[in-house]
Design a protein around this nucleic acid. Structure first.
Lengths: 185, 185
DNA sequence: GTCTATATACGGATAGAC
DNA sequence: GTCTATCCGTATATAGAC
């Protein structure tokens, strides 16, 4: 792994876990064992450029994981339910591979800069579209799929948030159980 | 309004809007026009004691507002739907009276201290119980009411979060429309 | 209880050698 | 491209007069 990647993955992990303001550049360089000069060489515009890059990185990575999980089951109800139960199963392994939420970062960006907020919205749209495609390919109407993919996005994000705060996966499981009722045609 | 209250309400507004780490004590004392000495007189343990007090204050205030809104309609489906549509209507008036979410603060507290995280959980339990009481008093079984009040809590919190990030109330309205389907007995 | 001045540490950012 | 030393602002917190 080169310096650029090392900085990016370390930053992604820390930003996602502790948030933008709570994560210092000093912490990132220490954790990734790269000197400060390198950070500013690779990200000349400093912290804001770095966080934008990490948001995009996490967005893409998570989107691929969602896609992969949903492909495991042809029935969308079962696929999405299993996906959420899988989130619950992996919930307590908090490492660089298990980041499924940008809620904290996204809420912080609202009062940091318009440009960062837009970056987060693009990520959410990407995820929502992944649910949408699954619903469409399973015979849902375009209208229904649009509405339901937004609701799915909301419930999954919300359940992860509550689970993080409570440090307890009850809400994730409860949401998974609600999927069949929500996804009535 | 006395000094104690002035500090508390100003802090509540800023913490809720920008988060814990992004809000400096200097900003709070400037905005509330109180000297720093007074802040440390009233909150000897500094920032963490202050934020704990604001979380409790907001929790109670919002709980009373939820109670009030839900009491306006005897039918729980209609009451909760109207409550959410009301949130959407007031969404763009962001002042000290319109704070309906502690998501940002709660997510931050996860990596600040156990004690603050517990304080946030107590607030969420308070709100969830308010939905629970409404459902019980409308004839829902205890089991059903427990399950549904958690889902309601999740969806309302989630919808506010997404609305904040998108600066758009579409999700609040979409969730309001979903309430009848969710609250089937 | 109120207020100001100050201590101390850490934040992001930069300069310049290699 | 890599690394260290350093600048400067702001953060929380405190001391002590009134």
């Amino acid at each position: 792994m080169n310096t650029h990647e090392k900085i990016l993955t370390t930053a992604a992990f820390l930003f996602q876990k502790n948030g933008y303001h709570a994560t210092g550049l000093n912490e990132i360089i220490k954790e990734s064992a790269t000197p400060k000069g390198s950070l500013y060489y690779h990200f000349p515009n400093g912290k804001e450029e770095l966080v934008a890059a990490t948001i995009k990185l996490m967005g893409d990575k998570i989107q691929h994981q969602i896609e992969e999980e949903l492909a495991k089951n042809s029935d969308p109800v079962q696929a999405i339910k299993e996906f959420i139960l899988d989130l619950a199963r992996n919930f307590y392994e908090k490492d660089q591979e298990n980041c499924f939420s940008i809620s904290l970062l996204a809420l912080e960006t609202v009062s940091i800069s318009e440009s960062l907020r837009k970056t987060c919205i693009e990520v959410y749209d990407l995820w929502t579209d992944t649910y949408y495609q699954k619903l469409i390919s399973s015979g849902f109407s375009s209208e229904k799929a649009t509405e339901l993919s937004l609701i799915l996005q909301l419930m999954i994000e919300g359940a992860i948030t509550i689970s993080l705060i409570r440090n307890d996966t009850t809400m994730l499981v409860a949401v998974a159980e609600k999927i069949p009722i929500l996804l009535q045609k």
